[in-house]
């Protein structure tokens, strides 16, 4: 007998049965959806391209991002592809180096939140009871704050530099992963294979990491790509307010903030770093959306 899920998938692609009555087991279906997932492909292309540009910034840029040339506010030309700023620094080189800063802050803080949030969620969901209630109330408190507002205050107090940005944002994004991990753990721990492992006397730590964690990875990865978008936007806002990595290091937000003084005579200064932010964030958003479409049989 043919696998019912592939039959349904075949019907769906043929445009016959638009929606299966029963939610599909998501492995097979997910695989075939991943293959033709336009948002995911485009998103991954953007993310990979911007990561490459960030890594290759020193080789790609014709000028040093901190080099002050005798050509302040020159319009885009063949010598300076995106023009120069007030101090005559090459805007393109600065955007490329800012990509480095932004992506490092975003990836490191998302990774920190991923690890700490997953650990908390895993323990809370598996232990349940008082431990769970206590940990979740602590996260409630952290999530009560508008993230950007608390980030502004914390970074201002700790001092604006890369490690503090990563630490602050990592802590602020932890509840997102903890909630996802906890919810998935709660459903996975009732499965037969977990019950069987408990019956065999496997230690709780081994159950959590060997049996539960691999089975809750998918929603956590989706959360990671969406958190990365949030981290990039937060870093951009913080650096716009002067609370990002400090000058002379280039940041997207900092470049836009500096440009406002001379915007009417040099509009390229504001527009190009802004478009860089939008480009990268669209990429991460598409990856998140694409993964979610692939994992969730209802969409």
């Amino acid at each position: 007998m043919a696998d019912p899920s592939t039959v349904m998938e075949g019907l769906a692609t043929a445009g016959l049965g638009t929606e299966p009555a029963v939610p599909l087991p998501n492995t097979d279906a997910a695989r075939s959806r991943l293959r033709w997932n336009v948002p995911l492909v485009v998103g991954l292309a953007i993310v990979i391209l911007s990561t490459f540009l960030a890594f290759a910034a020193p080789w790609l840029s014709a000028h040093d991002p901190l080099e002050i040339a005798d050509a302040s506010l020159s319009a885009p030309s063949s010598l300076y592809l995106l023009g120069t700023d007030q101090l005559g620094r090459d805007v393109l080189a600065r955007i490329l180096y800012a990509t480095r800063t932004s992506l490092s802050v975003a990836c490191l803080s998302a990774a920190l939140a991923f690890v700490s949030g997953t650990l908390i969620g895993l323990v809370a969901g598996y232990a349940s009871g008082l431990v769970d209630a206590f940990m979740m109330r602590l996260l409630d408190i952290l999530q009560a704050f508008p993230a950007l507002l608390l980030a502004i205050a914390l970074v201002a107090a700790l001092g604006p530099n890369l490690p503090n940005l990563v630490l602050t944002m990592g802590v602020l994004f932890t509840p997102r992963f903890a909630r996802v991990a906890r919810a998935s753990t709660l459903s996975v721990r009732e499965r037969d294979y977990v019950v069987a492992a408990i019956g065999l006397g496997v230690s709780p730590i081994r159950i959590m990491f060997r049996h539960v964690l691999p089975n809750i990875a998918a929603p956590l990865i989706i959360e990671a790509s969406l958190t990365a978008t949030l981290a990039i936007l937060t870093e951009a806002s913080l650096s716009f307010l002067g609370l990002g990595v400090q000058p002379p290091e280039p940041t997207w937000g900092g470049m836009i903030a500096q440009s406002t003084a001379v915007m009417s005579i040099a509009p390229w200064l504001a527009i190009s770093p802004g478009l860089a932010v939008v480009f990268v964030v669209v990429g991460f958003n598409l990856v998140g959306d694409g993964l979610r479409d692939a994992m969730d049989p209802r969409s």
């Binding site: 978008t229 936007l233 951009a236 806002s237 716009f240 937000g253 836009i256 440009s259 406002t260 915007m263 504001a270 802004g274 932010v277 939008v278 964030v281 669209v282 958003n285």
Partner: peptide, 9 residues
């Protein structure tokens, strides 16, 4: 995907 401050600027 667009930060509000960039839209504002």
């Amino acid at each position: 995907s667009t930060p509000a401050f960039f839209l504002g600027v």
